[in-house]
Design a protein around this nucleic acid. Structure first.
Lengths: 115, 115
DNA sequence: GTAGAACCTGACGCTAACGTCAGGTGCAAA
DNA sequence: TTTGCACCTGACGTTAGCGTCAGGTTCTAC
């Protein structure tokens, strides 16, 4: 598939896809004319990037994790990297729960006041 | 307290505090000489902002929510705003859990491979 | 009354993740 | 073979949340 189709199926912009390639996240074959050609598996890959992005990971971080993800990351450094990112995620989730709880306080307080 | 002290106690930079004021999040009295003076309650307020920031809320969004937070938000618009923000938070938490699960898959897969 | 730390207001710099031209090329259909 | 849409490569623009001068003032201590 070409880039427009991948963009449609994965729900991101064409510009974003070219950006991912620029950052070393996404590879593509080229047609004789120079246009990008993707395998259908690229759709899942891009969606995976979106998931990681929304979790607060940067392109650089994702690029660092990619070897682990693709090859299964068996070196100590890679496993440590995965672990530390996992812990960072847990930390972020705790922050979110904290924020959520604080918002709930505000909400219930305002409801009580409107009775 | 003055801005340096508030910065120290709340754990953010002086620049950040001035930025919050610029965005309408934080108010301050002024000494006759023009220096900012804060009440001790400002520490908690700033920490609250940090919590919301880390949860992915923008300054603009926080500024919109402030009236609800300070006065208890009783108008329908304000309650709706609180609710929608709460739902957005829940959505973000779900994304985090998804990402976390995906990372766990990678981690357990890599461990299995290294055995 | 003076040194020096802390403060002030601009104002420009920075990074990430794209958006958005501009100017030119590939490709599929009629 | 000529539309005309999709694609290409630069390259500059944008937003948020500050960092970082610069050049000047206030406050506190001695």
């Amino acid at each position: 598939m070409r880039i427009g189709e991948l963009a449609k199926q994965s729900g991101v912009s064409v510009r974003a896809l070219r950006y991912y390639e620029e950052q070393g996240l996404l590879e593509s074959e080229r047609t004789p004319g120079g246009q990008r050609e993707y395998e259908s598996s690229a759709v899942d890959r891009v969606r995976f990037f979106q998931t990681l992005y929304s979790a607060g990971l940067s392109s650089r971080r994702i690029a660092e994790l990619l070897p682990c993800i693709d090859t299964g990351g068996t070196t100590k450094e890679q496993q440590a990297m995965l672990q530390s990112e996992r812990e960072a995620l847990a930390h972020r989730m705790a922050e979110l729960q904290e924020a959520s709880a604080r918002l709930d306080e505000v909400i219930t307080a305002s409801k009580a006041r409107s009775l």
